[in-house]
Amino acid sequence: MFDLSGKTALVTGASGGIGGAIAKALHARGAVVGLHGTRREALDALAAELGGRVHVLPANLADAAAVEQLAKDAEAAMGSIDILVNNAGLTKDTLVLRMKDEDWQTVLDVNLTAAFRLSRAAVKGQMKRRWGRIINITSIVGVTGNPGQVNYAASKAGMIGMSKALAQEVASRNITVNCVAPGFIASAMTDVLSDEQKAKLNAGIPAGRMGTSDEIAAAVVYLASAEAAYVTGQTLHVNGGMAMI
């Protein structure tokens, strides 16, 4: 089950914790993997760890031309983009009264608009080949909201709506479009929290702990697989029961 041999996958934001775990999991299932990110050294290190069937594709997702080029580079390197994982994202948190237009725009550009542009580029080849998977990494806050994150929450909610619309457009071509919505995931960002802060966080999660990047990657592997062919337009919440939607 979940064999991805012969498939090609582009993972954006692969230099981060969750993106790296997704790339590794897809690779472990046999896929050729394109690693996108902004930190070249981190991508090179991950590529070295994976060995073969891997391509390093750095690009600035805030730049429209660079996003178009990334799609072209990925297709040139791998021959196709069978599986696109829009994982790259950033935050510029602040309360709305203090939020500048550029804080809003940058987050929307990278988290949502780049995902749109890459999906548009990838779906073209997927339609011709009559097979494709687009998996957008959204967030629990796209559904529940979170103070200080109006920009981030809007971008993640936008991804969910975009996925549902696109899923309907391309379903007849054996292309599925889904989201994975992580809750609190242990990362470099949460490592710096004090034990007291962590305990407080965990108290709000029925599972009593934060999730791991590998648990997000497993959800992506499932949605990328042939076995998930009949699942489209959905958001798979991976959050330890923190929100049940």
Binding site: M127, K128, S172
Partner: peptide
């Protein structure tokens, strides 16, 4: 053809 086919044909 369906609507998606017509777009693909144009492309």
């Amino acid at each position: 053809a369906d609507s998606l086919d017509t777009v693909e044909l144009v492309m």
